[in-house]
């Protein structure tokens, strides 16, 4: 993991988003371009945070509708539009988690069959069990640590980009990613020891 320097690519992307946002403000139909560009990113984040497709769809819908209604509040001050969307998503997911009635086990049904290419039935069962423990360990981490790991590994975002979402420096994000991984490993090891 290296600390990424702010490149021109990111700046161009930011300007491109700024232009799209400006178009969307003038003509709401232009919002479709932003929606198409970021739907997968937002959905992926929300999906791993809430753990099921149904709630992920509801929250993703709310994120885009919220963004559409409050598009005028977005100010292009070097923060990409995607970071703004992910902040909205983070807040809505936090609200969702706060609701006591929604404290139920994480299911992540679609993740069950992940990357099981060429595994024997026994290996597939062990793999599924391993993934289940990983999921539980991930869900037991503090919110900020879950967020940083999902943004880093599910979204493939750079430290600097994650920093823009979380309001931290790239260096702070790098440290947080490492601590989160160590914490995840520790919890996973505890679960494995319990099982033994």
């Amino acid at each position: 993991m290296s600390l990424e320097k702010g490149g021109d690519g990111g700046r161009e992307l930011c300007h491109e988003d700024g232009a799209l946002v400006q178009q969307a403000r003038e003509k709401r139909e232009a919002f479709e371009a932003l929606y198409t560009k970021y739907l997968r990113k937002v959905y992926t984040y929300v999906y791993y945070r809430v753990g099921n497709a149904e709630d992920a769809e509801d929250i993703t819908e709310s994120v885009f509708l919220h963004a559409l209604v409050h598009l005028d509040r977005y100010q292009d001050r070097g923060v990409p539009f995607s970071a703004w969307l992910l902040r909205i998503a983070h807040n809505l997911v936090a609200n969702w988690h706060r609701s006591a009635s929604r404290k139920r086990p994480v299911s992540l049904e679609a993740a069950e069959g992940l990357h099981d290419q060429g595994l024997s039935p026994e290996e597939a069962v062990e793999r599924a069990e391993e993934i289940r423990r990983l999921r539980e360990a991930l869900a037991s981490l503090p919110e900020e640590r879950q967020q940083v790991l999902i943004l880093r590994y599910a979204e493939g975002m750079r430290h600097r980009e994650i920093g823009q979402v979380m309001g931290k420096s790239a260096g702070a994000v790098k440290v947080l990613v490492h601590r989160s991984l160590v914490s995840l490993h520790r919890r996973l090891s505890e679960k494995e020891e319990e099982k033994r």
Binding site: E29, E32, Y48, E57, T60, L65, L114, A154, L188
Partner: peptide
């Protein structure tokens, strides 16, 4: 653990029907 996490976390595509519904909602 890192390898396991990387294999587990990956971009997820939403249901196409949901995408279309949201697209319709967001436009026009």
């Amino acid at each position: 653990t890192v390898r396991l996490l990387k294999s587990y976390l990956h971009p997820v595509d939403p249901d196409p029907a949901f995408s279309r519904r949201l697209e319709d909602l967001c436009q026009g």
